[in-house]
Structures are given as structure tokens and as C-alpha cells.
């Protein structure tokens, strides 16, 4: 996990259509302060001078109540409590309802280089949105060597050893109208405990691909915006493997294999690659099959059910016709 600073928080908010509407109103020098925990704190007790168990690592939220208390402190000319509060290095303060902090508070924030942010949201609204945003930032994550593509709306992660043809397969899929999320390096985040979000690890790399023999190509420019996506939930993992004649491959697909990524199990297929096998079409079909399964139709199981029914009727028929012939 890279350092996540207050500046990153504002930056992230800007990118995500300002759902938090955060503005910095003071203490700009402290924007590099790091946010280390995804929780929030309302510093009511701290303001009243009680600092036991003060959760200073958290972002401090000032709503109407806290702001009113700040005004009371100013009226009483009490700067000691604020000084003590600022001796704990909390990441930043956020004022909701577009509230203006008191002069004392502004002064000390500037002096201690502690950023002050403001938003027009209500405290409860900000809390829900901010907790959600932060839990995404602090979600468990890892980077994986593979290609993430969206095929018929299904996020397919293609993995396999270097040189097995992941990028070429993805290129063919893009050519067939599917979308590239990330080539070579996929960053996976486990959002809200069960959803695996995959995205590119680095904005600089964007939607470039490296194809042996061609070099580096830019998918966004070659195929247009319709061929790319920034992130996508991973719903199927396909591992490409060089065909091994000694090995037994799944012929029925009635048994569902899964693999674990960050503790979440995802449907998993192993597709052997050899010249003449059109892997992109196999992946397209696998994705469509996955959609069917999601809709409650399992091709392999349904097929087997039909066979069972047919065998049953055949055996009844043969018993019946045997009886007849005895007469």
C-alpha cells in the first residue's frame, strides 16, 4: 500500500466526480500528511479537554455541534485545549455544512500545518460517503501478472506464464469488440469483502500493450474509447497453459472449479493452448457460458439431466417391450 495523503484524498474526490465536494480552506502545507486508517472521528470529547483514547490517527469531522463548541471555546478565550488537541498529529479536519472554523482554529491549523477541508454535505452524508471511499482505498489489494478484459460484460482475467500468448489473445478479443482493462499488470482490490475489482496499476501505462514483434501499442488510440475500461469486477479467471499431451483436461465442465484471489473464490478455467486452437473464441464462449450460469442455466448440468432422462425413458421402454414380447 502506497502512502495515502490528504492531497490524494482531494485528488481522488476530484476524479470521482466530486462526490465528497472537498475543498481545502487552510493549512495547505500539511496536505502531505498521511491518512493511515479508514475510520473517522468526531472530536467532541477531545474539544472538551478529554484526551484519553483520542483517536488522533483518524480524520476529524467537525459538524454543527463541534463547530458551535469551537465558538464557545473562542468566546471563553480558551486556546489551551486546541493547542493540546493539535499536539496530536491528526491527518486533517473536515468541516461539514460549509461551516467556517473559528479564527483560533484557523490560526493554529496554519501554524501546525494541519490541513482544514470543507464540504457542503451534511455530516451524516459525508460520513457515509467518506467511509465508503476510504474503505475502497484501504481494501486489501495485490498486483497480478495477467491481462484483464471485459468480454460480453464479464470481467475475464487471463493469466499464464510469460510467452503463452495472453496479450495476443487479449488483442484478438479487442479486435472482436471487447474491452481492455489492463495488460500485463493488474491491480486487484477486494471491495466490500466479496467483490474483486481489477484495474491498471499505473496511469502512465494506461491502455498500452506490449505485443512481441510489434512492440508497444496504444489500444485507446488504435481502437478508440469503446475498446477500453478503467476498472472491472473480475468474474472469471482463465489460465492459459501450453498443451501438455500427457495431461487430462476437463471435457465436460460439469464440475465447477474455482480459484482464490484475496480470499474470494472466482470461477476458474484452465485452457490449453496449441497452434490451431482459437483461444479468443474459447474465452468468448466461456464468458457467455458464465453469463448463462449467472442466469441460472448450467449447460453441462442441463445436458447431463437430459441424458439421464433419456436413459431412464429408454430403459422403461425396453422393460415394457420385453414384457410385451413374453406374451
Amino acid at each position: 500500500m502506497k502512502n495515502f495523503t490528504v492531497l490524494d484524498l482531494i485528488d481522488m474526490d476530484l476524479k470521482e466526480h466530486n462526490s465528497l465536494n472537498l475543498r481545502c480552506i487552510g493549512g495547505r502545507k500539511g496536505l502531505v500528511r498521511e491518512i493511515t486508517v479508514p475510520e473517522l472521528n468526531r472530536p467532541g470529547l477531545a474539544l472538551s479537554g478529554f484526551f484519553d483514547n483520542f483517536a488522533f490517527q483518524r480524520i476529524q469531522i467537525f459538524g454543527r455541534g463541534e463547530n458551535a463548541y469551537l465558538r464557545k471555546l473562542e468566546k471563553e478565550d480558551n486556546t489551551r485545549t486546541l493547542a493540546e488537541m493539535f499536539s496530536y498529529e491528526f491527518p486533517c479536519s473536515i468541516f461539514t455544512h460549509n461551516l467556517q472554523p473559528t479564527k483560533d482554529f484557523t490560526e493554529i491549523s496554519e501554524r501546525m500545518n494541519c490541513p482544514m477541508l470543507s464540504t457542503d454535505l451534511t455530516t451524516s452524508e459525508l460520513t457515509t460517503r467518506l467511509v465508503w471511499a476510504l474503505s475502497n482505498v484501504f481494501a486489501p489489494q495485490k498486483t497480478i501478472h495477467g491481462v484483464l478484459v471485459e468480454v460480453y460484460g464479464i470481467g475475464v482475467l487471463i493469466t499464464g506464464r510469460s510467452g503463452v500468448g495472453k496479450s495476443e489473445t487479449a488483442l484478438e478479443l479487442i479486435e472482436r469488440g471487447h474491452r481492455l482493462v489492463s495488460d500485463d499488470v493488474v491491480e486487484i482490490k477486494c471491495v466490500s469483502g466479496s467483490v474483486l475489482m481489477g484495474s491498471g496499476a499505473n496511469k502512465v501505462i494506461g491502455h498500452h500493450m506490449e505485443i512481441r514483434g510489434l512492440g508497444i501499442i496504444n489500444i485507446a488510440h488504435l481502437y478508440g474509447v469503446a475498446a477500453i475500461r478503467d476498472k472491472k469486477q473480475i468474474q472469471l479467471v482463465v489460465e492459459l497453459e501450453t498443451w501438455d499431451p500427457e495431461k487430462e483436461y476437463d471435457r465436460l465442465g460439469s464440475h465447477e472449479n474455482t480459484t482464490e484471489l484475496l480470499g474470494v473464490s472466482v470461477p476458474y478455467l484452465k485452457i490449453p493452448v496449441k497452434p490451431g486452437r482459437n483461444v479468443p473464441i474459447l474465452i468468448e464462449t466461456a464468458a457467455m457460458n458464465e453469463r448463462l450460469k449467472k442466469m441460472g442455466y448450467h449447460s453441462a448440468k442441463e445436458f447431463n439431466q437430459n441424458i439421464l432422462k433419456w436413459l431412464e425413458s429408454e430403459s422403461i421402454r425396453s422393460v415394457y417391450s420385453k414384457k410385451k414380447s413374453f406374451r
Binding site: T143, S162, G163, V185, N202
Partner: peptide, 28 residues
């Protein structure tokens, strides 16, 4: 890629496959 072995690079906590160009560039 000339070697049979798996090769990885690690920077801070990121570990990437040493046989992938994009991976290595991602390390920044």
C-alpha cells in the same frame, strides 16, 4: 526471458514478474 527460472522484482511491497515489460515499467 532467456532463463528458465521465474524472475521477480520487488519494490517496497510490490512484486512484479520480471518477464513483463509493462510490469517493470509499472514499478516506476
Amino acid at each position: 526471458n532467456k532463463f528458465e527460472s521465474d524472475i521477480y522484482f520487488e519494490k517496497d511491497n510490490d512484486r512484479i514478474n520480471g518477464k513483463s515489460i509493462m510490469g517493470i515499467i509499472t514499478l516506476g
